[in-house]
Computed example of a mutant assay.
Amino acid sequence: MRGGKRCPARAPWHEIFWSLLGSFIGILAVYLIGHQQDLRLEDSLFLVGSFGASAVLLYGIPTSPYAQPRNLVGGHVISALIGVGCATVFSDYPAIGAAVAVSLSLALMHLTRTVHPPGGATAMIAVIGGDTIHALGYWYVLTPIALGATLMLLVAILINNLSPHRRYPQYWF
């Protein structure tokens, strides 16, 4: 409980710049796809909260194993599938459904080597996301989740490889 290590040094300015640029463009791109469907910002299903956490990984620490393409897309898709299933099975018990969804998602991400921490939120959003999310059913897996994650991946490939100090992805499979 004492720790024993010191806080790491601050990231260099060039890393902060590329992180800021990538996350801005990635989240804005996801919003613009939803905007094309004439959705108000607060109704935009493409701005799923878990994408904010994905942006931190993809653009802030792109060398992390959790930020790699198989983890990003696989983790979100697996978690969305489980989340929708749990929303259906536990529709009368959302707290239990959310707990089961997050737990099963984590276990399956481990089994498939696709752990992406924001996937837990993706699963939970499918359960507690409200009527608009529930009305999507398994379409939630394709749009916003798979489409949004893929769009963020494309931005990550572009932005992270524009920097002379970054290489992304580290691996695909």
Rank of each mutant, 00 (worst) to 15 (best):
G137A: 10
L136S: 10
I78G: 02
Y93E: 12
F51E: 06
N160H: 05
I61H: 01
V155N: 02
S19N: 06
L106C: 09
P12G: 15
L147R: 04
V102I: 14
A135N: 12
D92L: 13
A67N: 03
G60A: 05
L39C: 14
G3M: 13
A87H: 00
L47S: 02
S44G: 12
A95P: 08
D131Y: 13
I128E: 01
I33N: 07
L45V: 09
N71Q: 15
Y168I: 03
L106S: 05
L20F: 14
H116L: 03
P65L: 07
L153W: 06
L72T: 02
G26K: 00
A146W: 10
A9K: 14
L58G: 03
G52A: 10
A126K: 08
V155M: 02
L32F: 10
Q68H: 09
G75A: 01
L58D: 00
M1R: 14
G120E: 03
W13F: 15
P94S: 05
G34T: 07
H76S: 15
H76N: 15
A53C: 11
L162V: 11
P169E: 11
F90Y: 08
L20V: 11
S163Y: 10
T143C: 08
H14Q: 14
A121G: 02
G148Q: 00
M1P: 12
Y31L: 01
R70F: 07
G52H: 09
G22N: 04
G34L: 09
Q170S: 15
P117G: 07
G83V: 03
T122A: 05
A55Q: 03
Y168R: 09
C86Q: 03
C7L: 13
S64W: 04
G74A: 10
V102Y: 08
R167E: 11
A107R: 12
G34N: 05
M1S: 15
I16A: 14
A156Y: 07
V141G: 00
F24G: 01
P118T: 11
G26I: 08
A98W: 03
G34I: 05
Y31I: 09
C7A: 14
P69V: 06
S19F: 05
A156T: 08
V127Q: 08
G83E: 09
N71V: 02
Y31F: 13
F17C: 12
T122E: 01
Y140V: 04
D92V: 14
L47F: 02
I96C: 12
H116F: 03
A98D: 00
S105L: 03
T143L: 07
V56C: 12
G130T: 04
Q37H: 15
A146G: 05
V56T: 14
A121S: 08
R10P: 07
Y66F: 14
I145Q: 01
P144D: 02
T143Q: 11
F46H: 10
N160T: 06
H76P: 06
R70K: 10
T150R: 09
G75T: 04
P118M: 01
H116R: 04
I145N: 00
L28G: 12
V77E: 05
G75C: 01
P169S: 12
V48W: 06
A149I: 07
P94A: 09
W13Y: 14
V89S: 10
F173C: 13
L47G: 02
M152L: 10
L21D: 09
S19H: 02
G137Y: 05
I78W: 01
D92I: 09
A98C: 10
